[in-house]
Amino acid sequence: MYKNKKIIIIQHLLIWLVLFSIPFVLTYGQDLDSNRLIAHFLIPMLFYAIIFYLNFLILIDKFLFSNKTVVFILINLVIIGFFILMKEFIEDNYFAELIKKRPPEDNREGPRFKLFLYVQMLSYAAPLLFSIAIKTTKRWVKTEAEKKEADNFKLQTELQHLRYQLQPHFFFNSLNNIYSLVDISPEKAKSTIHSLGKLMRYLLYETNTEFVPLSKEIEFMRKYIDLMKLRLTDKTEIESSFPVSQNGIQIAPLLFISLIENAFKHGVSANKNSIISIDMTIKGNIVDFTIENHNFPKQDNDKSGSGIGLANLEKRLQLLYPNKHTFEKELKAGVYRVNLKIETN
């Protein structure tokens, strides 16, 4: 911040240096009338600077931005009027020779005086308007930056909430699966608990960043699919295909697991044959994920899962990949199909 203030001060000094140098640059190599230069340029320029900084540093914040517009206008009219009179006073008392040199027709009565006053008011209003423009722009930039920071904080808070919401959801769904194995196959239940421990380690310690390598997500999904296979009978066939090379693609964690959970929850039947097909491909920077499963609606007495998985996913996609994803769901001829495409950069 200190460096920024120093840069701003230097910028202001350079701008005024350029402005005060204009007459010297324009008349380079010519004789300068120093009295005319002082009276008609340097003194007005000094007054312009005073008007500018009075407004820029004090009056705009104190009155204009505090909705005291009438007071702000009146104060500036008084200041401008004072400087016009001061300029005339200085010219009359210290630069009388310039007045004598004015052509006879340049009298200040009637319309000519009104025109003179109008031009003077406009010239002194210029630094006022310029200070308002700069101050308003700075305020707008600051407001936008604060708004962006607030939006970003809100986004991160909501994402963190969704992530914390997903973890227990995933954990309880997995526990339900293990519970179903305890009586049927205790050895499988033990193996499942061990596998679940590895999955939870990834959930807790490796997904707390905004993005993770796609390769880690694929490894996590493979382990989860293997975990789910332990409780399946030979009536359910699992087909899965993942890309071998991901070219260093980074992606938000835990986007696909809800879809896989959903497929195992609704695509498995105890007495009917079924297929769960999972396919992921990479086309350039687009990750294309498709999953299909036979649809066996849950019974009313089935309390597995909380139903928040897909809703959670859709919210996260909207926050993380606005206008950079497509999410399509379709139920046709008893087969539920979901396609998710994500543009990763």
Results as ranks from 00 to 15, higher is better:
Ser174His: 04
Asp183Leu: 05
Pro297Asp: 13
Leu232Asp: 09
Pro253Gln: 08
Glu210Lys: 09
Pro213His: 05
Asn247Pro: 00
Ser274Gly: 15
Lys283Met: 01
Phe264Leu: 10
Val244Ala: 12
Ala263His: 14
Asn173Trp: 03
Phe172Arg: 01
Phe296Ser: 11
Lys198Ser: 06
Phe171Thr: 06
Gln250Met: 12
Lys216Trp: 02
Gln167Trp: 03
Leu255Cys: 11
Lys229Pro: 11
Ala189Asn: 07
Phe172Ile: 12
Lys190Asn: 08
Ile275Glu: 15
Ile225Tyr: 09
Lys198Leu: 05
Phe211His: 03
Ile260Asp: 04
Gln246Asn: 12
Phe170Glu: 06
Ser277Asn: 14
Phe256Asn: 04
Tyr202Ala: 03
Thr207Phe: 01
Ile251Gln: 01
Thr290Leu: 09
Glu237Ser: 13
Gln167His: 05
Ile184Met: 04
Lys283Leu: 02
Lys272Met: 15
His294Arg: 07
Tyr179Leu: 06
Ile178Trp: 09
Asn273Arg: 15
Leu227Ala: 12
Asp226Phe: 08
Lys216Asp: 13
Gly267Cys: 13
Lys229Met: 14
Val212Cys: 02
Ser269Thr: 15
Phe170Pro: 06
Ile257Met: 06
Tyr179Arg: 09
Pro168Tyr: 09
Val212Thr: 02
Ala252Arg: 01
Ile184Phe: 02
Asn247His: 11
His266Val: 15
Met200Gln: 04
Glu217His: 06
Ser245Arg: 10
Phe289Lys: 03
Leu259Pro: 07
Met200Gly: 02
Ile249His: 10
Met228Ile: 13
Asp288Ser: 05
Ile238Ala: 11
Phe211Gly: 00
Pro213Ala: 07
Leu214Cys: 09
Phe242Lys: 04
Lys235Gly: 11
Ser174Val: 01
Glu261His: 14
Ala263Leu: 14
Thr236Asp: 12
Ile218Gly: 05
Lys235Glu: 12
Thr192Lys: 11
Asn247Trp: 06
Phe211Trp: 02
Ser185Glu: 05
Lys229His: 14
Leu254Val: 07
Ala270Pro: 14
Ser195Ala: 09
Ser277Ile: 10
Ala189Ile: 06
Leu204Asn: 03
Ser277Ala: 12
Asn273Val: 14
Lys265Asn: 13
Lys216Phe: 04
Ile291Phe: 03
Asp288Tyr: 06
Lys235Arg: 13
Leu232Thr: 15
Phe171Gly: 01
Leu255Thr: 07
Glu187His: 05
Gly284Phe: 04
Phe170Asp: 05
Ile218Glu: 02
Asp183His: 10
Phe172Asn: 07
Met221Gly: 09
Leu227Glu: 09
Asp279Leu: 10
Gly248Gln: 09
Asn295Ile: 08
Val287His: 02
Ile193Val: 14
Leu181Asp: 00
Leu204His: 06
Val268Thr: 08
Ile278Leu: 07
Ser269Phe: 15
Ile257Ala: 03
Leu232Gln: 15
Ser241His: 13
Asn177Pro: 00
Lys198Ile: 00
Asp279Thr: 12
Phe211Ala: 00
Leu259Tyr: 11
Ile218Trp: 00
Arg201Gly: 04
Ile225Phe: 07
Gln167Cys: 05
Ser195Asp: 08
Phe171Tyr: 06
Glu237Cys: 09
Leu230Val: 12
Gly284Ile: 03
Lys216Gly: 07
Gln167Glu: 10
His294Met: 08
Val287Glu: 02
Asp183Ser: 09
Phe172Cys: 02
Asn262Gln: 12
Ile282Ser: 04
